[in-house]
Design a protein around this nucleic acid. Structure first.
Lengths: 117, 117
DNA sequence: TCCATATTTCGAGAATACTCGAATTATATG
DNA sequence: CATATAATTCGAGTATTCTCGAAATATGGA
């Protein structure tokens, strides 16, 4: 059920530490970061962070992969894409004209960036 | 602070009843709905709904206006635009190539819809 | 003014979420 | 095998959120 996936993602991101974690992981790109590195960067206790990473993982916003002793986490942008799409569909449903500014914004901006962001 | 606005909006939408309310209000467009009509439609007690509407209002996702005895609520798409923009910026920050699919999705679709959604 | 309607506010109870210290699991290395 | 490192799981305490019945507020009409 699509709504629940969106709901889980929204709930996961609606918590400051988790939003910070996700933003940090997005910044690091495909390489991602180890759980410990995230904990250090955000100054969160490792066990507390682990709980938040588990929540992000359950909602599909991050993916985990063991690398030696560490576990590497990275943002899953497919889920973010799904979430943004879901939100846009909601906005546009029945009233496309109301959402024009959003599409405009996404389409506009630096021309060199056109087609990507 | 931009992050807190986004955080509030995410937290507001990360709750099933509130997500339902917002989606319903988006569907009704600019006219919106009275609090009572929303309560009836979603089968939520009026006082419970009032709490959720207040939360949505605080986060800027809905606007309220008294109309006689009733209070008319409508979705505030500016805030949704802000939220989607914030999420996209996060995604693209430093790694634009990773977000291309999102922009592509927004740009593509039914040509008759091009420029709006 | 009196009454009905619409909504919100208040107060309390139950459930959920967040955080932390301690213990546990998994992996690597000497 | 023993030890160190990395991360998770467990258990408990606190805080927050959700829901509801009851009471209060605001508006419109007889």
């Amino acid at each position: 059920m699509e709504k629940n996936e969106a709901l889980n993602a929204l709930a996961a991101l609606g918590q400051e530490t988790r939003l910070d974690v996700f933003r940090l992981l997005v910044k690091t790109g495909k390489e991602g970061m180890t759980a410990g590195a995230v904990a250090d960067a955000l100054e969160v206790l490792p066990n507390t962070l682990s709980t938040h990473l588990a929540a992000l993982s359950r909602s599909g916003l991050v993916a985990a992969e063991r690398a030696g002793r560490s576990i590497q986490y990275r943002a899953n942008l497919d889920t973010m894409q799904f979430l943004v799409t879901y939100l846009l569909q909601d906005c546009c449903a029945g009233h496309p004209e109301l959402c024009a500014p959003i599409a405009t914004l996404v389409n506009s901006g630096d021309p060199s960036n056109s087609g990507s962001c």
